[in-house]
Design a protein around this nucleic acid. Structure first.
Length: 883
RNA sequence: GGGCUUAUAGCUCAGUUGGUUAGAGCGCUUCCUUGACAUGGAAGAGGUCAGAGGUUCGAGUCCUCUUAGGCCCACCA
């Protein structure tokens, strides 16, 4: 077939078209008052990231939206970029240095940060080029990085503003500490996992007495930092003990028994050891009872000098040693298995330690207010809706955000200390918060000023992403035009980390929501349901899939199997469906293109507007526009899999299976050609958001002089071409043709041999209809003749089927297997009768007649009469068969 | 402890506000390399919609409970 190969080869089109699109600046958008903006900001992938299936899904959805909106005439802006990913990136670079036996402290801060920038130059945009392979139509001219000058400036601006508003403070609190990364983490960055641990019961003797109090703990090593034992004041068991002095085993320190409401008498022994430096509850108890915390651990998770004999041991080593020693001292009462949830570092999966330290925090409650209101009033909507509740629950119970990190890669806090003032006892003194380094201390005029060593949480820059990327705090034209953005597309995992915080920042700094819709898609899992991760080794690499099946196949497959908000279970085989579909489309196009005459007028659209077209033409057009309407509806409610499957069904099972086959019989007719072309052309436009490359390639092969499909308008619905009557008539044609094929298969008529067909109808109307598609029966059911009759007639040796009121007889040469035929008919009668009975029962039910809507009842009545007709005919056939 | 979510054909899953005989893809059976496509075509087989109650004229769909998975949140010493 001319020069077009019969197998679609994605490799020959993908790079080619991507370059064209980029070259023509189709991805770029700028403020334009004549057009309505549609804006998406990408969830910026980490610079350490390599494209995984989660990204593939996330970005395919965004690209579908942006391409769809662009075709609809919106000024579509998809702003891309990457996140500096503080801890993750620092870890990666540290690991790289470790291979050369270099530690970051050997290099010093400045040199280390320089190395990270170098690393970023080299590897930081891997994922960007991978997104291009996927076909993402991001506005690369606007690519941002969270540590760009502009975004860094926004971060400092925000820090200063919040500090001045009293929403940022510094203090000593229990935070989640990762001993491996050696930094504080936010609550969200500590991932809780259920572990099967133990509950250890330890006896604390009362000073100078034989009595003792048993306390239960899961972390015996923290006992070294105990400063009290607490009981519930209402707990009668311990009334007489409150105020007594206990001897802390192993340390031989004296501690008091105190009473506090927080203690649950039901749990453990009802007495709890109090370790203010290593437990958030105990910390609160410590404050209430004015107890001085004792820190027993170093930042690296080893025991410190306060840990007595255990100093220098790793925390878990110390735990074992302590248990041994407790046993020896006969104060370990018992050990019980105990399942409890333990925090792990979200970057390195080390068990985090609740740890008392001096950190910076953001007061969240005041910020959450507007964000709660916005979602409650529907200004911001979640799709699927159920995430609203998850979001609101978190926002309504929000806790302060620990934002300081003890690492080097990130935005350094714009906080400066006057060393002179800091020497005074007032810790608040000597703190300067400013975007630029102060020359002198305003209080004492000293020039001995140092900047805080810490950097900010990575999310402290990404929560500003929807506006910092458009130039904030400057009042730029971009910002004015593109903010607020339209839709945020992301995964459930970062609703708290990112979505909620962006909403808060949006209201705080822009006075407006950062986006209207939040579309939360599912998580990509492997076929066993496990989350895809590098460590599990169950990754399906999207780039490999693109190599093997093509980007369009990847996109289409993953979208079509991802129902709204549902997790998606992937295996490599699932990408075959997309590849096969691409190939099917390819071949349909190849067929159509090669059959278009030189002089066919592809701009001719009046032709089918009101002309009296043949049935199949009206049918395919009606289906096309019905599909378009349904696709539009699906798009509007983010039901992408549904839209994809609608197109699949239409193109494959309507256009290819039926229309193309019918068209083969009259390819010379201009009408046929125009409709073949029109339907293909519009299908490609509808398909383009899903499969940009193949749709563009086919578009370019069509004999029209139109620019890239990317910038073509989305098809308009045409209600006047939706023709229910044509659809009904074609249903009859399809039913009859299928019935004949069925007979042929049952009685083993070889595919090459044609057969005779006699169709008798019970009413004249259907006879007229059948005559309209006589030719289709001939070609599609391989019939040499079709006889249409108003009354039942059939030669003796023939096989018969009934469809509606049509009796379809295929005369057989030679003898017919009467038994087989009878069996076939009886089987069919059985089926029909069951159906008829169910319908009759329904109509006999008075309540149904009385209460069901009239349309439903009428439809049931009509159905019953149809079934009866079919049934009667089948019975006649059977009777004649037996005579 | 609280919340969310899933259970439909051998497998993977659709099924929008309750209304024709519950669908698709893969797999399976039989046939077909006929001029778009074997990454294909034709015809089939295959389901008491997890279980038990309830609401309703009518339930895969709504409610309650049960069972079995998965996920998230929580100051579970």
């Amino acid at each position: 077939m001319r020069d077009i190969p019969s197998v679609y080869n994605p490799k020959s089109t993908e790079d080619k078209w991507y370059k064209v699109w980029e070259g023509k600046k189709f991805f770029h958008a700028g403020p334009d008052a004549r057009k309505k903006p549609y804006t998406i900001v990408i969830p910026p992938p980490n610079i350490t990231g390599i494209l995984h299936m989660g990204h593939a899904l996330n970005n395919t959805v965004q690209d579908i939206l942006i391409r769809w909106k662009r075709m609809q005439g919106y000024n579509a802006e998809w702003l891309p970029g990457t996140d500096h990913a503080g801890i993750a990136t620092q870890n990666v670079v540290e690991k790289m240095l470790a291979k050369k036996d270099v530690k970051r402290h050997d290099l010093g801060r400045e040199e280390f940060v320089k190395r990270v920038w170098q690393w970023r130059e080299k590897y930081g945009s891997t994922i960007i080029s991978q997104l291009k392979r996927l076909g993402c139509s991001c506005d690369w001219d606007r690519t941002r990085f969270t540590m760009d000058e502009g975004l860094s400036n926004a971060v400092l601006e925000v820090f200063v503003r919040l500090y001045e508003k009293g929403l940022i403070y510094r203090g000593n609190y229990i935070i989640n500490w990762c001993p491996r990364c050696q930094t504080a983490l936010s609550d969200e960055e500590a991932q809780h996992k259920d572990l099967n641990g133990f509950l250890y019961y330890i006896k604390y003797p009362v000073k100078g007495e034989k009595r003792y109090v048993s306390v239960a703990t899961t972390r015996p090593e923290t006992m070294l930092g105990d400063v009290a034992v607490a009981v519930n004041p209402k707990d009668s068991r311990y009334n007489n003990l409150v105020g007594e002095t206990l001897i802390l085993p192993l340390m031989n320190r004296e501690i008091k028994v105190i009473a506090d409401d927080i203690v649950d008498p039901e749990f453990g022994t009802g007495a709890v050891k109090v370790t203010p430096a290593h437990d958030p509850n105990d910390f609160q108890i410590g404050i209430r009872h004015k107890l001085e915390p004792i820190l027993v651990m170093n930042p690296d998770g080893t025991m410190n000098k306060n840990a007595g004999d255990y100093a220098g041991m790793d925390r878990f080593e110390a735990r074992e040693a302590i248990l041994e020693d407790l046993k020896e001292s006969k104060v370990l009462e018992k050990t019980e298995p105990h399942a409890h949830s333990v925090g792990h570092c979200y970057r390195c999966h080390t068990v985090v330690e609740p740890y008392l330290s001096l950190q910076w925090f953001v007061k969240m409650k005041p910020l959450a207010k507007a964000g709660i209101e916005a979602v409650k009033t529907g200004k911001i909507k979640f799709y699927p809706e159920r995430w609203t509740k998850v979001y609101l629950d978190w926002m309504e119970n929000i806790r302060d955000w620990c934002i300081s990190r003890q690492i080097w890669w990130g935005h350094r806090l714009p906080v400066y200390y006057c060393k002179k003032c800091q020497k005074s006892s007032d810790s608040k003194k000597g703190i300067m918060v400013s975007k630029v380094r102060p020359e002198r201390c305003p209080a004492c005029d000293s020039v001995d000023i140092v900047q805080d060593e810490d950097v900010l949480d990575t999310w402290f820059s990404s929560w500003l992403w929807p506006f910092s990327t458009f130039g904030w705090p400057e009042k730029t034209g971009d910002l004015k035009y593109f903010y607020p953005t339209s839709t945020l597309v992301t995964a459930q995992e970062i609703i708290f980390f990112w979505v909620a915080r962006m909403i808060m920042a949006g209201y705080e700094f822009m006075g407006e929501a950062p986006f209207r819709d939040v579309y939360i898609h599912g998580t990509v899992r492997d076929e066993t349901g496990a989350k895809m991760s590098k460590s599990l080794g169950n990754i399906i690499d999207p780039i490999e899939i693109i190599e093997e099946f093509g980007a369009d196949a990847l996109r289409f497959s993953i979208i079509s199997i991802t129902a709204v908000g549902q997790d998606v279970f992937l295996s490599k085989e699932k990408f075959q469906s997309g590849r096969n579909f691409a190939n099917k489309i390819w071949n349909a196009a190849r067929f159509v293109i090669s059959n278009l005459s030189e002089d066919v007028d592809t701009d001719l659209c009046v032709l089918y507007k009101n002309a009296d077209l043949p049935l199949a033409d009206r049918w395919i057009l009606s289906n096309l526009y019905t599909t378009l309407e349904e696709v539009n509806r699906a798009f509007e409610s983010y039901r992408f899999s549904e839209a994809a499957n609608l197109l699949y069904e239409f193109i494959w099972h309507k256009y290819c299976d039926w229309y193309l086959e019918i068209a083969k019989g009259r390819l010379k007719e201009k009408t046929t050609q125009v409709i073949l072309y029109k339907v293909l052309e519009k299908s490609m436009r509808m398909l383009h958001p899903f499969m940009p490359f193949i749709s563009e390639e086919i578009w370019s092969l069509l004999p029209h002089k139109r620019d890239s499909i990317m910038i073509q308008p989305w098809p308009h619905t045409q209600k006047d071409l939706i023709d229910k009557k044509a659809e009904e008539e074609m249903d009859l044609a399809i039913g009859i043709i299928t019935a004949i094929r069925n007979i042929r298969a049952e009685v083993n008529i070889p595919p090459q041999r044609s057969c005779k067909v006699i169709i008798s109808t019970a009413n004249g109307k259907n006879a007229t209809t059948v005559r309209k598609f006589e030719d289709h029966i001939k070609s599609l059911a391989k019939a040499e003749s079709v006889e249409v009759s108003g009354k039942p007639e059939r030669p003796k040796a023939s096989s018969v089927a009934v469809f509606g009121d049509c009796e379809i007889a295929v005369p057989l040469e030679g003898l017919i297997d009467l038994d087989a035929e009878r069996k076939r008919i009886m089987g069919r009668i059985g089926e029909i009768e069951r159906w008829m009975k169910a319908t009759e029962a329904k109509l006999k039910n008075e309540n149904f007649i009385k209460r069901a809507p009239k349309e439903i009842v009428d439809a049931e009545k009509a159905k019953l009469s149809e079934i009866k007709t079919t049934s009667d005919r089948l019975k006649e056939v059977l009777k004649r068969l037996e005579s």
